[in-house]
């Protein structure tokens, strides 16, 4: 076992891990932060997306020890300290961008990464950016709409809510 130390949502976090411990296992099992999910084993579904040093990564395809010293951001750190949802989270609720909620943490984290690079993405850009995030419930309609709305675009003309 090796000690790994990183910053998670602004707080120091450390734990003993094996070489093979995935970042997502460190978050879920060592830290008990179960908001980040695992939906596949071929790094395609994106339920496990977190930010490492400001970049979206699949925490199921990264070793915990690779995140030594890194700044990690997860879904648990997205809302304000008093629980107020951030703009993206609020837009997902407002526009019904989630159903079962399992892909949602990854969707929100990917959306945050997208909007950081591209503050007003087009519909096509959003759909393309979500290539690595699978949702089985929504048919993506309201996810795309929510991200457009979160970026401040008028979505009232988009087909039914």
């Amino acid at each position: 076992m090796t000690k790994v130390t990183m910053t998670v949502n602004g707080k120091a976090a450390s734990g003993e891990v094996e070489g093979r411990t995935l970042l997502v296992s460190f978050l879920r099992e060592t830290l008990g932060m179960t908001g980040t999910h695992v939906g596949c084993d071929t790094s395609q579904c994106g339920a496990c997306v977190v930010h490492v040093d400001g970049k979206a990564v699949k925490s199921c395809a990264m070793l915990a020890l690779e995140a030594e010293g890194a700044e990690v951001a997860t879904i648990e750190g997205q809302a304000a300290a008093d629980g107020t949802l951030n703009t993206i989270q609020a837009a997902f609720q407002e526009h019904h961008g989630l159903q079962c909620g399992f892909c949602t943490p990854g969707m929100v984290m990917s959306a945050a990464a997208l909007l950081k690079d591209n503050p007003k993405p087009s519909e096509a850009e959003i759909r393309h950016y979500l290539e690595g995030n699978l949702c089985r419930c929504t048919g993506y309609h309201n996810i795309v709409k929510a991200i457009m709305a979160a970026s401040g675009q008028d979505v009232s003309a988009i087909a039914a809510e």
Partner: peptide
């Protein structure tokens, strides 16, 4: 009414309780 979903709050903030979250 198109009431907004109350369950969304926990799902959006990473505080849902899925079976794999139970240990």
């Amino acid at each position: 009414a198109a009431s907004k979903r109350r369950e969304d709050i926990r799902f959006l903030s990473g505080t849902g309780n899925y079976t794999d979250d139970i240990n």
